[in-house]
Amino acid sequence: MTRHLLSIDDLSVDDMTTVFDTAAEMHDVQRREVKKLPALRGRTVINLFFEDSTRTRSSFEIAGKWLSADTVNITGKGSSASKGESLRDTVRTICAMGVDALVMRHSASGAALQVSQWVDAVVINAGDGTHEHPTQALLDAYTLRQRLGSLEGRHVVMVGDLTHSRVFRSNVKSLTRLGARLTVVAPPTLMPSGIGAWSKEAGFETSYDLDAVLPDADAVMMLRVQRERMAGGFFPSAREYAVGYGLTRDRLATLGADAPILHPGPMNRGLEIAADAADAAQSVVLDQVSAGVAVRMSLLYHLLAGGDVS
């Protein structure tokens, strides 16, 4: 397995399968009365978050604690970064305390890769700018596997603000490599430039027409639309976005009853996803959250528990 997890590219298909299989065992631990395994006893994991996050940060914190690691949360606000310290000084200072792993979220694409070159600790990317969010993609794929069995040949539809979404970029890599048939849907203004060449190379489809692809979907993944994008002129109004690309009650009716609905959260009800869809029996949004802890436990275990393999 890789030393750092900066991108889905760091994992082979076999690595991903290993992560999923271990996550399934970790999922069982979640249902126990005593949720504790001693595998990471004596290891220290720092969650260094320069961007807001509730679920990713607490998910990593719980995952670390259930594996008996000592976890410490540091947020950008209130840290020395807000006093003008450079990122390099901040991470080197933290790591000088004797840290085994650094889970990092930063608004700059490539921040995790950059930091991994500065420190000895294992670096896990918990979201860097619009680049990648590999642990989210892994928990999405794990949730889909739990629901659909294998992903081989299954049709996954991903809808939303593709231009600004790191979840989208990581998911394209993992889902296509795991054999899923992927269609990504967005309004033309939110379709990333250069996606034509990428889709050909990676082997996925693009579409502007959600109604055309939805009936054929084995699973649909709604991505969050940031309301602040409206100011950037990417779409005229929330209502217009919902009508064109939201998973509305009418569209829900055209989706197969067994097709799971995923959303990485936080959801904008009424914008990209209607309450009917978010609360539908086929919605797996909360399963994703619980899978998130299991997948992160699995990753922390595989990246931190073993000895140096030289």
Binding site: M1, T22, E25, A39, L67, Y301, A305, G306
Partner: peptide
């Protein structure tokens, strides 16, 4: 019962995937 996570030699070898505890 799988005891992989409880072994005292975890750090001296590459990680192994745990089996099912049921």
């Amino acid at each position: 019962l799988d005891v992989t996570m409880y072994r005292d030699d975890l750090r001296s070898q590459p990680t192994r995937s745990p089996h099912k505890t049921s």
